[in-house]
Amino acid sequence: MELSESVLKGLQALGDPVNFDMNKFTTLSELAFRGLLSSESEAVLDHPDLKQIDPIVLKHCHIALTTFILESVKQNADKSTVSSCLEDVRFDTERADALCTLYQVKYGYLKLIFQLCSLKQNKTDLENLLSSIDKCPPHITDVSWRLEYCMKNAHVHKVNQPSYLISFSVENGDNGRSSEEELNFSCTMEQLQDLVGKMKDAAKSIEKAMQL
């Protein structure tokens, strides 16, 4: 795992018992994870437990820790990689374990957030942090349909044709903003059969690919 010098220094400062005793360290770790996962960002600098620490050091450590968490998740780092990395910056063992446990517990959730963040960027903290994340085409989330029987219109009478109105719910996950829209179109029975047939082909090929 490659980390910048600033992050390494921040982690070193975090591991220094002069700056952080075990309680303060746990508080900051929890705040860092919460800051990433929750939309209500808690001000680290104003936290009562962390008041005594020099704000510049605290800020540096917080940034370093957050970057470290994101980088670990991004690289899919396992416990031993994280541990060895933390030992490299001279963490004592007790602390490294505390961070690792937290990391393991929140790991799955955080990773999920990563995968979802291009879709569900309602988490304002993540928006700012992960604004450069994965862009993908609009995502279909649902479909609704309506069956109609057209009898006549101003120009032609006795049309007597059934037709479907299809409405795809589409989610746009552009950076920082997520918007829903409806994509409406009509089709005849034959056209709908064609559409469903092609979707089934796609589903079948997924099934085949899964068996490989």
């Binding site: 993908c136 609009p138 279909i140 479909v143 795809f168 709908l192 979707m199 589903a203």
Partner: peptide, 18 residues
């Protein structure tokens, strides 16, 4: 447009109902 496999199955099922 894009979708995931689970949603695709749901879309097929729903349209087949139609």
């Amino acid at each position: 447009l894009q979708t995931d496999p689970a949603t695709l199955l749901h879309l097929i099922q729903e349209l087949e109902r139609g």
